[in-house]
């Protein structure tokens, strides 16, 4: 078991023939991901990486039965690509693109929701179900199979956390990078729910950062609905106010969105918060041994 995706997922890549799309699609194929084709407008009918290329997502869906899309389209066109995927009936849309205008995402997100699809990202490393399928840009080998579910706003910090969990003698069921933009698709709550229902997942690691209040909402949700142990880390305890820290969403607005308020909310919900980013693995070990 795993969440969202597994070895039976049929994946298409939007922006398949571009530089980023090609590079990462090849890495995904090496990992064993079931990529059934790709979409690049005006290149329909050709093949790339030994897979068929289509002009549109709907053509790709009809021809291949794809249910997942991985998007590498440049920021100016990425929101459109997300909406095209949702319109074509894709169930899980993973958007890696960084730098999409907020106003575009406000509309795209509402449309995706209307269509009942699940959007992961944008500005995220994607999803990986350990040793089965990788739909994203993470280094696959770091994610050894195990029983810890991982949800994170970050890229390299997710790899760091997964590595620590593996070094501590555990492994990952599925890891999901939800992205660091102000407007993202699926958030902690939806994924916490999925991990709670997943038989293989025994503990959940939540990695957050400054900005917004998704972690606070997650804390409220965990308190009421999650029975599995949750370990968290919040990045940006030393970040100054009013400065964007790399991610477009990582900004303390006024006095809202600090790491401290998120840590307190999570602790009050019974979550074990790792004090430093270096202790995520050992904190997971402690929590699982206690169990």
């Amino acid at each position: 078991m795993s969440i969202l995706v597994n070895k039976n997922s049929k994946i298409i890549v939007q922006g398949f023939t571009g530089k980023e799309g090609s590079f990462h699609a090849e890495q995904c194929l090496e990992y064993g991901t079931n990529i059934v084709g790709g979409v690049t407008p005006k290149k329909g009918g050709t093949t790339h990486l030994a897979k068929p290329v289509f002009d549109s997502v709907s053509e790709a869906v009809i021809a291949t039965g794809a249910n997942v899309s991985l998007i590498f389209v440049p920021p100016a066109f990425a929101a459109e690509a997300i909406m095209e995927a949702a319109d074509a009936g894709i169930e899980i849309i993973v958007c890696i693109t960084e730098g999409i205008p907020v106003s575009d995402m406000v509309i795209a997100k509402r449309f995706v929701k209307d269509k009942g699809a699940t959007l992961i990202g944008p500005n995220c490393p994607g999803i990986i179900t350990a040793e089965e399928t990788k739909i994203g840009i993470m280094p696959g080998y770091v994610f050894k199979k195990g029983n810890v579910g991982l949800i994170s706003k970050s890229g390299t910090l997710t790899y760091e956390a997964a590595n620590q969990i593996v070094q501590a003698g555990f492994g990952i069921t599925t890891a999901v990078g939800i992205g660091g933009d102000p407007i993202i698709g699926a958030s902690y709550i939806e994924l916490l729910q999925l991990f709670e229902a997943d038989n293989e997942t025994e503990a959940i690691v939540l990695i957050g950062e400054i900005g917004g209040e998704l972690e606070i909402k997650a804390a409220e949700f965990i308190k009421e609905n999650i029975s599995k142990p949750v370990v968290a880390f919040i990045a940006g305890q030393t970040a100054p106010k009013g400065k964007r820290m790399g991610h477009a969403g990582a900004i303390i607005a006024g006095s809202k969105g600090t790491a401290q308020e998120k840590i307190v909310a999570l602790q009050n919900a019974g979550v074990t918060v790792s004090e430093t980013p270096a202790q995520i693995g050992e904190t997971v070990a402690k929590v699982l041994f206690k169990k």
Partner: peptide, 13 residues
């Protein structure tokens, strides 16, 4: 990476 960069500041502190 932005998340790891923030975390690095945190661990220095």
């Amino acid at each position: 990476g932005a998340g790891l960069a923030m975390s690095t500041m945190d661990i220095v502190k």
